[in-house]
Design a protein around this nucleic acid. Structure first.
Lengths: 344, 344
DNA sequence: CTGTTAGCGCATTCAT
DNA sequence: ATGAATGCGCTAACAG
């Protein structure tokens, strides 16, 4: 496989000097129209693409740092919610945001391999995914700071929430509001946050409580999971889920079966994503936006040039943000007996 | 302002050769522990950061093309919907996606200036925003292909929908379903798509129909706009909006006033974003995902190296995707008289 | 208008 | 184990 053509190649083919090629490349006026078109022709013929590394080296362009953000977009709202403040914050710190959509382990390894091999980023942001210590070491050796969002990683600063506590709180609420049999609609096993929420659920519901894992994080999957649960355990009167969309699916299924919500069955989501208020969904609110802004701020700190030589290396600490239960129309109030209708 | 320290600087300070510095930089085993720490010390002292352009030039790293995507995230769902397939498609074509959050004209010009000045991208994606012909020429001169999403631009391929036709269709439907007085809730004037939808609305509602522009694209703003409209024109019985979130706001306001929807007032949104089906919102569906995949595919084509030299320059054509009216619970059916209740 | 030359900062043989 | 020399592809004077 022949290497990419350089300005030398196109200069030769066009019968001119490399400076002339450089000139047309940079839109200089000091080139005769004829020469210019000849050169352009040679460029398109050879499929020439300037080597930006060479150019930036020559022009001593700013060494703008890039942060590679790896995210599995399995739950649209969550990732968008972190992306927005993230991109804003990074831009403010003069950092470029390169987005990588990671759908599975192969994707992740391929991208990470490339990142270290080609040294294509100066900062790394992992979202909802872990990496081994060898990986961490690789990046550390290259002085590429890492921050993690929604996933604790040894030796890497991260921003997380107490998923187990959040789900436990939700489950406890259902019970206090009179639920006799609670069940959990979870998501794909791969997600750590989901597993932690499962833990939280079982810690208060008891290990024997029914669980069903939806195949995906969307309404349809949530509905299917709920149907399976209800078929197997008709006595279920409380459904806690690991995600709002799954909760919406649960709500749809419950209604399709003629079950009154929250009178006959209560439902709780997780995230408090957009429109949950409109739908009246009770849910565990997670400060998704802060995930993004924390990540941006942390990366900015870590990537800041030491103002003065011999400055001590900067560090950032992991933080755990609080979650809160938002009670709306799909749950009853804790003090109320199930015979009352809490809805106004 | 002193320029960044290079390996020469740190070599001198550590009293070693640049090759040694390079070695510790790359984690080579062939360095004595003592020398290594000396060098590392010098590096942190000087705040050394390797110049990646130089490195990539030296190792002849792959010249992976990057596409800069500029988007104003004023409507979360829309942009996320295009981002997802976009990132997937680009990754498949071995292209990097660099995201720029553009909030206003200054942002846009600053980013575009940088992009051309530093030649920091090989492909450009404009979303919901226009640029002047001088700009187009700048990028063309640098052989940076441009594609546009949701905004027609002279001389650049774009993917759009017929906003006017879509909104006209929605408006017409309300009228046929018996609406006597329709009004429009629009969004910030800056967005072309919104202006086009306004046009479509007025083309069937008549120039005298009431209009109110919400300050932002969210539920609250939609609600406020609707309130203003209803206060000024109590006879309004049909509200068409330029966006689903605004429609949700309209719905909230209508209900707050005790107006029956769709019996007393019909409402239509635009986009058909996530959860609109659950909410039962009638809306004009726009194929947002296809916007993203079209952009990725087009950029991939435009940036593809000609397989064989002297290939003809590739081109892509603009496309206009179809929109369709999705009738749900916030509108009545066209054939029905307003005295009937279309809801099952 | 156009060709020649000299770096840009780093990795990499080669020597030592 | 370490240093000197060479080249990566391109831009920018400097000549002509």
């Amino acid at each position: 496989m022949p290497s990419d053509p350089t300005i030398y190649d196109i200069a030769r083919r066009a019968g001119v000097g490399i400076a002339t090629v450089s000139r047309v490349l940079n839109g200089s006026e000091r080139v005769s129209p004829h020469t210019r078109s000849t050169v352009q022709r040679a460029m398109t013929d050879l499929g020439f693409r300037p080597n930006r590394a060479a150019r930036r080296l020559a022009v001593r362009g700013p060494n703008r740092a890039r942060v590679a953000a790896l995210m599995p977009f399995f739950s649209a709202n969550f990732y968008f919610a972190v992306c927005e403040p993230l991109s804003k914050g990074l831009a403010g710190a003069d950092l470029d945001l390169v987005l990588y959509n990671i759908q599975n382990r192969e994707d992740k390894n391929r991208v990470l391999d490339r990142l270290v091999r080609e040294r294509s980023c100066e900062g790394l942001l992992l979202c909802s995914m872990g990496i081994g210590q060898e990986r961490v070491a690789q990046f550390r050796n290259q002085a590429v700071p890492i921050v993690s969002v929604d996933f604790p990683i040894n030796g890497v600063p991260s921003v997380t929430v107490d998923n187990a506590a959040g789900e436990a709180k939700a489950t406890r609420h259902l019970l206090r509001a009179g639920a006799r049999q609670v069940a959990l609609v979870s998501g794909p096993e791969a997600a750590l946050a989901f597993r932690q929420r499962e833990e939280g659920f079982f810690s208060v519901a008891g290990a024997a409580a029914p669980l069903h894992r939806a195949a995906a994080v969307n309404i349809e999957a949530g509905r299917a999971a709920t149907a399976a649960l209800l078929d197997a355990h008709p006595e279920i009167d409380g459904i806690v889920t690991v995600n709002d969309l799954l909760a919406v699916g649960a709500l749809a299924e419950a209604r399709a079966r003629g079950l009154q919500v929250p009178e006959e069955v209560q439902i709780v989501g997780f995230d408090d994503q957009q429109l949950m208020e409109v739908i009246g969904m009770s849910t565990v609110r997670q400060p998704m936006g802060e995930f993004g802004s924390w990540a941006a701020a942390s990366l900015a700190t870590l990537l800041a040039r030491p103002a003065t030589p011999a400055a001590t290396p900067t560090t950032v600490d992991s933080v755990e943000l609080p979650v809160s239960l938002v009670q709306r129309a799909t749950t009853r109030s804790a003090q109320t007996q199930r015979t009352l209708r809490p809805r106004p």
